[in-house]
């Protein structure tokens, strides 16, 4: 895993050094003269060889670094330093740390929503396989799957907020400052984000559970004379839901890197909005930082999911 994280830093670094577009030119816009570009290039450390740049990048993460060493007011970036955004005149880490709680609440809320509805409706569909509740759930899943998030988001926004005025215009506050306003703001983004995932998890859960119903060990459980409820809950569901843990962990981690569409529709200042802005501004240090963070989340989530799976399924435990 350490190796993976190391390779990740190399990949991110390479990706953003070979990208077309000269970062030094981007710093000054229309007022560029070759002299200014050269000066900026030096200020950014872009005139150094790539390996040295990479060393400075890694060194910054562990020990902190200074930008514009030659100028009278160097920017001091303490460890862990992910870089300095010249567009925003701010440290990348600070920008991410400010945006992260928004994304965290958005992802967690949507996660809870889609896990509860998706799995319970999926189980319902499996239990009523072939009858109308199953068909209804599968139809809902298909619809949810087909609707793009921006469409649902704009429609909900138009009706619920603009036309019917059931909710105020979204304006993010921390849940610790104003829980009521927080919930009013987050409700629609949660729903929009959860719709797609709910549709996916309904289908996934249904298929998983149906598959385990056909397993030999479920027949064994019935042959033992266990009540149907025990057969379903203890024997079929336990085995059927195990793979869903994997999918859920990775999906949550992916979302923690920002939900670009939902955050933008509801103007939530999270990582998704931040990365979109970084892209439109060609703010490479910021983009690199966000990419590094998101990828780290996914790597860590992978590890957590693997550990969790070992708890659920004795077959993957080591040393036995």
């Amino acid at each position: 895993m350490i190796l993976l994280l190391f390779l990740l830093t190399v990949a991110v670094f390479l990706l953003f050094s070979i990208l077309p577009g000269d970062p030094a030119r981007l710093t000054c816009g229309k007022s560029c003269t070759p002299d200014i570009i050269e000066a900026n290039r030096h200020r950014l450390g872009l005139d150094k060889p790539p390996l040295e740049q990479y060393e400075a990048f890694i060194g910054g993460i562990f020990f902190g670094r200074e930008f514009s060493e030659d100028s009278p007011q160097p920017v001091i970036c303490n460890a862990p330093c992910l870089g300095y955004s010249y567009n925003r005149h701010a440290q990348v880490l600070g920008l991410i740390v400010n945006a992260f709680p928004v994304t965290f609440w958005l992802a967690t809320g949507a996660f809870i929503l889609w896990i509860t509805t998706g799995i319970s409706l999926g189980i319902l569909a499996a239990l009523t396989h072939g009858r109308w509740p199953d068909r209804l759930v599968m139809t809902l899943s298909l619809i949810g799957y087909s609707l793009p998030a921006f469409f649902i988001g704009l429609v909900l926004m138009f009706f619920v907020i603009i036309k019917w005025r059931w909710l105020p215009f979204p304006s993010y506050v921390s849940p610790f400052d104003n829980l009521g306003q927080f919930l009013q703001t987050m409700l629609l983004p949660w729903i929009v984000l959860a719709v797609l995932y709910t549709a996916f998890y309904m289908r996934l859960t249904r298929n998983q559970v149906l598959e385990t119903f056909g397993e030999d060990y479920v027949r064994t459980a019935r042959a033992k004379g266990l009540p149907e409820r025990t057969v379903v809950v203890k024997h079929a569901l336990r085995a059927g839901l195990a793979p869903i843990v994997t999918a859920a962990g990775l999906d949550l981690a992916g979302l923690l890197g920002g939900a670009i569409i939902s955050e933008n529709i509801f103007s939530l200042p999270g990582l998704g909005s931040l990365s979109l802005n970084a892209v439109t501004d060609s703010d490479l240090p910021l983009l690199a930082g966000i990419t590094l963070c998101t990828a780290t989340f996914i790597i860590v989530a992978n590890l957590v999911v693997d550990l969790l799976y070992a708890v659920i399924d004795p077959r993957v435990r080591l040393g036995s």
Binding site: E215, Y217, R219, A221, A239, A242, D313, P314
Partner: peptide
């Protein structure tokens, strides 16, 4: 018997 016992 490989699949008739619950693996968990």
């Amino acid at each position: 018997p490989m699949s008739s016992l619950h693996p968990f």
